[in-house]
Design a protein around this nucleic acid. Structure first.
Length: 270
DNA sequence: CCGGACTCCTGGGTGC
DNA sequence: TGCACCCAGGAGTCCG
């Protein structure tokens, strides 16, 4: 899944198929996702898709009245197919369009979500308290620096906290900290303002680059038209434990921080 | 408010 | 081949 670049790639894949189309049917084969898929998703039927958007890693399908909120969790994906294509294992929900095409939600681990909202998705409990988008003007080194004062938790956990900034998942957190020379376990409150400027720039760069490349392909990510992403081979530290740092040659280390694997260069990152 | 642990679930890889 | 075990991209929730 889906870190932010994969979600953005997914959005760009489905939007042209959905916008302006009427949703003929929401076919739920398995409602037990992270939260039970509510019966209210049927309100989408007969409605035209006004726009598809993304907020953090949530996909928003805006209809004339209300809309759908989707999250891909750790293993979810959407693909575009024909409504009469035979469903595969873990194909839990279809958004069938009047065009005869179908947006099919597949999620082996079922950590994903499909919810309904009535008005103003930004006010939804899941979206309300989120931090800025990393590729927006509201995100900066100054923002990170200000929020981090006095915080003693690891900087890696800090930048992965959606209340601070959205969309920085485990892979890109490791990558951005390497790019800015900051040790992932350093206390967030003990990183200087100048280094937060470098970190914010690295977060932007790594996410923007991954989006341009169509998302990472850590294991089996495919975009909605079933093309794989091509970013994985460019990762600098992630899953490179024991391999030489591309900057200094020291062995990359792996360490669990906040229950997640973190990769870093012990010489380049302080 | 903050930080850490736990939780949901399936599947792929590894080692015996 | 079988099986036990470990690990995995998220993030809400609970508890101290």
């Amino acid at each position: 899944m889906p870190e932010l670049p994969e979600v953005e790639t997914t959005l760009r894949g489905i939007a042209p198929h959905m916008e302006g189309q009427v949703i003929a049917e929401v076919a739920v084969r398995n409602a037990s996702l992270r939260w039970p898929v509510p019966a209210a998703v049927a309100h989408a039927e007969g409605q035209k898709v006004v726009a598809c958007r993304r907020r953090a890693k949530y996909l928003l399908v805006e209809l004339e009245r209300g809309g759908l909120l989707m999250h891909l969790g750790m293993s979810g994906s959407l693909r575009v197919c024909n409504a009469d294509d035979t469903p595969r294992t873990h194909d839990h929900v279809d958004l069938v369009l009047d065009s005869g095409r179908c947006i099919r939600f597949n999620d082996p681990r079922r950590f994903g979500a499909l919810l309904w909202w009535d008005r103003d998705p930004e006010a939804h409990a899941l979206l309300r308290d989120l931090g800025p988008e990393p590729l927006s003007d509201a995100f900066s080194g100054e923002h990170l620096w200000r929020l981090s004062r006095g915080r003693r938790g690891a900087v890696k956990n800090f930048i992965m906290d959606g209340h601070v900034v959205v969309g920085v998942g485990n892979i890109y957190a490791s990558e951005a900290l390497f790019m800015s020379g900051i040790h992932p376990a350093r206390a967030a409150g003990r990183v200087s303002r100048a280094r937060y400027e470098a970190l914010a720039a690295a977060i932007r760069d790594v996410l923007a680059h991954a989006i341009r490349r169509g998302g990472t392909t850590l294991r089996d990510f495919v975009d909605p038209d079933s093309n794989p992403g091509y970013f994985a081979q460019e990762l600098l530290v992630y899953e490179r434990e024991g391999n030489p740092c591309l900057q200094c040659g020291a062995a990359i280390r792996r360490r669990v921080i906040g229950q997640r694997s973190s990769y870093f260069c012990p010489k380049c990152q302080r």
